[in-house]
């Protein structure tokens, strides 16, 4: 990325985060899709749906769990990217982990602890929101 001159740019930082996160996201989505195979898509087509209706009404809702896992994993991996952000961002893009790391290095543990708690909150709250928003509606008889 440095060779291609995209270091120090916002695009470079986003690219390097994607590079680290995409394999996790793809793996989780792929495993989720493999779980159902194409059997429900076959039903949908047989009942008269076209490919777009099948994707919107069947494939996408059935991928919700994989999608949820992929978003969570991507978010966590991205949040913890310290070195890559620092290197490709040329120190110009201050993410939470980039801000926190020097304090732990310099032994300023009190400030580092505050950042750690902040880090915990900004990780857990989105996890909770994603879990609530993207979860399957389960039946009334299931716990």
């Amino acid at each position: 990325m440095i060779k291609y001159g995209i270091n120090g740019s916002y695009f470079g930082v986003v690219s390097v985060h994607c590079m680290f996160c995409l394999p996790y996201a793809i793996k989780l989505l792929e495993d989720n899709l493999a779980l159902y195979g194409d059997k429900y898509e076959g039903v949908s087509t047989n009942l008269g749906a076209n490919w777009w209706q099948t994707f919107i009404r069947v494939t996408l809702p059935l991928s919700k769990n994989g999608l949820k896992g992929a978003i969570l994993m991507t978010y966590i991996v991205s949040m913890t990217q310290y070195l890559a952000t620092l290197m490709i961002g040329d120190g110009k893009y201050l993410t939470l982990s980039v801000r926190m790391f020097p304090f732990t290095q310099a032994g300023r543990y009190k400030i580092a602890a505050i950042y750690a708690i902040t880090f915990l909150i900004v990780t857990i709250i989105p996890l909770y929101i994603i879990e609530k928003v993207l979860i399957f509606r389960r039946g009334r008889h299931l716990s």
Partner: peptide, 18 residues
């Protein structure tokens, strides 16, 4: 092969909805 994310009603209505 009932769609697991849909209720019985939604499953039955699927063909007419599309």
């Amino acid at each position: 092969r009932l769609f697991p994310n849909m209720t019985v009603f939604q499953n039955i209505a699927f063909g007419l909805r599309v």
